[in-house]
């Protein structure tokens, strides 16, 4: 089973943003307890001095990632020097990147389009495949989690099909849909449906029995159970499934596009390899990484906004 816990790659990076909230929280504490204790009084008094210390904390949060990035660039430069320029160095690549990103949306025929178009086309495929998978997978997850019979019926199928590489489905997609684009979308659909089904089903099974007992005592209708109890309780699990699915989909689209061609970031990588333009391949790697990171960040924000404290425990 897929773990239904939030792991944020940016948890550390998000921490400094909490600092500005601190005065507000202290003020709330003081308001709740009508007579603030002396300890709290001193905390409020110390507030200006902690603001000064924050600079050091901020530096400690910012400096290590910067060193990490510098290490990467340094290694890259070293590799570039030892391969005598077979792999272009950071400076060359940077120059090329500036050139590419100064005009990301040009169109010189079907096989020569700007990087912006390539990323957007890939994102469109991911959105379509993923959207279809969500539309099928989330209701299926609810049904499998809620009804034991359906769970027993489908769990062996899911266990059998889930470990299959989504790319193995690509020929089937090409055969059935007779086109590269729908086949790529089909591949995304297949790879992103499993985490959503599994996480939603696990979420439904983990809805505390107490809540279900409440539903039974209040004699709530199946619709009310779904909207007032199941859906809010399952939402965090579901969003974990969504996050895993988007991550996988973004991994798979690059490989799928390398095989299918057309316009897309994966095809762009392959095309630049055929042109032996290694600088562009390196740029593509960074672009894929950054887009993936942004997707992940957006979904973590979404997930934490919909998670209630008592659900987590």
């Amino acid at each position: 089973m897929v773990s239904a816990v939030f792991h944020g790659p940016l948890e550390g990076a998000a921490a400094p943003s909490k600092a500005p909230h601190q005065p507000v929280r202290l003020a709330q504490n003081a308001a709740v307890k009508s007579i603030p204790t002396s300890a709290e009084g001193t905390k409020v008094m110390k507030e200006p001095s902690t603001a000064r210390i924050d600079w050091r904390e901020l530096a400690l949060k910012v400096v290590p990632p910067v060193i990490g990035l510098a290490l990467l660039v340094g290694l890259w430069a070293l590799v570039s020097i030892t391969t005598k320029g077979n792999i272009p160095g950071p400076a060359d690549t940077w120059g090329q990147a500036v050139e590419i990103f100064s005009d990301p949306f040009y169109r010189n025929g079907p096989n020569d389009q700007g990087v912006g178009w390539n990323v957007l086309m890939s994102l469109e495929r991911v959105a379509l495949g993923f959207g279809l998978a969500a539309a099928v997978g989330i209701p299926a997850g609810f049904a499998i989690g809620r009804f034991t019979f359906l769970g027993r019926m489908f769990n062996p199928l899911i266990s059998l099909l889930r470990p299959v590489s989504p790319l193995a489905w690509l020929p089937i997609g090409l055969l059935v849909f007779k086109g590269a684009n729908p086949a790529a979308i089909w591949t995304i659909f297949i790879c992103s449906i499993w985490p959503m089904i599994i996480n939603t089903a696990v979420g439904v099974q983990r809805v505390p029995q107490d809540y279900m007992n409440v539903a039974r005592v209040l004699n709530l209708s199946e619709w009310k159970i779904l909207t007032k109890i199941l859906f809010p309780a399952v939402l965090p699990y579901m969003l974990t499934g969504v996050r895993l699915a988007v991550g996988t989909a973004w991994l798979v689209i690059v490989a799928a596009e390398m095989l299918t061609g057309g316009v897309g970031i994966g095809f762009w990588v392959w095309d630049e390899w055929n042109n032996l333009n290694v600088k562009n391949i390196i740029i593509a790697i960074f672009v894929i990484g950054i887009v993936g990171l942004l997707l992940e960040m957006a979904l973590i924000k979404l997930a934490s906004a919909f998670t209630f404290d008592e659900v987590k425990s």
């Binding site: 505390p208 107490d210 809540y211 007992n213 409440v214 007032k228 109890i229 809010p232 309780a233 209630f308 404290d309 008592e310 659900v311």
Partner: peptide
């Protein structure tokens, strides 16, 4: 119920 069992999102 023993542990109140209120729905935390309401």
């Amino acid at each position: 119920f023993q542990n109140h069992s209120l729905l935390p999102w309401l």
